[in-house]
C-alpha cells in the first residue's frame, strides 16, 4: 500500500475537470430545466388562478342576471295574473250584465205574455161567459141577455137617480155604451125605463168594441155601468188560484 503522489496530483486535476464537465453538461441543464419548469408551472398556476377568478366573476354576473331575470319573470307573472284577473272580472261583469239584461228582457217578455194571456183569458172568458149566460137565459128563462142587462141597469140606477141628476147638472143628453149594437126591443125598454128618472134628458145609444160586454150610462160627469168585468175578474182569480196551487206529490191527480 503506497501513495503515488503523481497519480494523486493527476487525480485531483481529473476530479476538478470532472466537476467542471458535470457542472457544464449535467447540473446546469438539469437545474435550469427544473427552474424553467417551476416557472412555467407557477405561470400556469397564476393563469389558472386568474382563469378561476374570471370564472367566479362570470358566475357572479350570471347569478346576478339570473336573479334579475327571475325578478322580472315574477313581476311579469304578477302583471299577467293581475291582467287575467281584471279580464276575468270584466268578463264576469259583462256576463252578469248580459244575464241581467236577458233576465229583464225575459221578465218583460214574461209579463207581456202574462198580460197577453190575461187579456186573451179575459176576452175568451168574457165571450164564453157571455155565450153561456145568453144560452142559459134563453134555455131557462126564454129571455135575452141584453134585456136582462137593461133591466139590471135600470134597477141599479133607480136608488141613485137623485144623485145622478145632481151630478148631471144641466146636461141635456145621456149616452148608453154597449159592446155590440143593442136590439131595438132593448133600446126601447131602456128608453122607457129611464124616461121617468131623467125626463128632460135625451137618450142616445152608441157601441164601443173595446168595452166589456154590458151597458154603461154616461150622463154629464157621472157614469153608471153594469158589465161582465167583475165576473171575468172573479173567473181569472179562481183560475189563478187553481194554477198557483201546486198539486201535492203522490196525490190522486198526480198519480193518475
Amino acid at each position: 500500500m503506497s501513495i503515488d503522489w503523481i497519480t494523486v496530483a493527476a487525480q485531483i486535476a481529473n476530479f476538478l475537470v470532472l466537476v467542471w464537465l458535470l457542472k457544464r453538461f449535467l447540473y446546469r441543464p438539469i437545474l435550469d430545466g427544473i427552474d424553467a419548469r417551476e416557472a412555467e408551472i407557477a405561470s400556469r398556476m397564476q393563469e389558472a388562478v386568474q382563469a378561476r377568478h374570471k370564472a367566479e366573476q362570470a358566475e357572479a354576473e350570471y347569478r346576478q342576471k339570473l336573479r334579475s331575470q327571475q325578478s322580472q319573470d315574477a313581476d311579469l307573472s304578477e302583471a299577467i295574473r293581475k291582467a287575467a284577473e281584471d279580464k276575468r272580472d270584466a268578463i264576469l261583469a259583462d256576463a252578469r250584465e248580459q244575464q241581467e239584461r236577458e233576465r229583464a228582457l225575459w221578465l218583460t217578455q214574461r209579463d207581456d205574455e202574462a198580460r197577453e194571456y190575461a187579456q186573451k183569458l179575459h176576452h175568451v172568458g168574457a165571450e164564453a161567459l157571455l155565450s153561456l149566460t145568453r144560452k142559459a137565459l134563453g134555455d131557462l128563462a126564454d129571455d135575452t141577455l141584453e134585456a136582462r142587462m137593461a133591466a139590471q141597469l135600470i134597477r141599479k140606477i133607480g136608488p141613485m137617480a137623485a144623485d145622478l141628476r145632481t151630478a148631471a147638472g144641466a146636461a141635456a143628453g145621456a149616452v148608453i155604451y154597449s159592446h155590440a149594437p143593442l136590439p131595438p126591443g132593448v133600446t126601447d125598454r131602456l128608453t122607457s125605463g129611464l124616461a121617468p128618472l131623467f125626463p128632460e134628458v135625451a137618450l142616445e145609444f152608441r157601441t164601443d168594441p173595446e168595452q166589456a160586454p154590458g151597458l154603461v150610462l154616461r150622463i154629464g160627469g157621472a157614469q153608471v155601468a153594469w158589465t161582465l168585468d167583475s165576473y171575468i175578474d172573479g173567473l181569472e182569480a179562481r183560475v189563478a188560484d187553481r194554477l198557483t196551487a201546486a198539486p201535492e206529490p203522490g196525490g190522486p191527480d198526480h198519480g193518475q
Binding site: S2, I3, W5, T7, V8, Q11, F15
Partner: peptide
Amino acid sequence: SLSTTTAL
C-alpha cells in the same frame, strides 16, 4: 487506489 482516495 489509495492515491485516488487521497486525492479526493
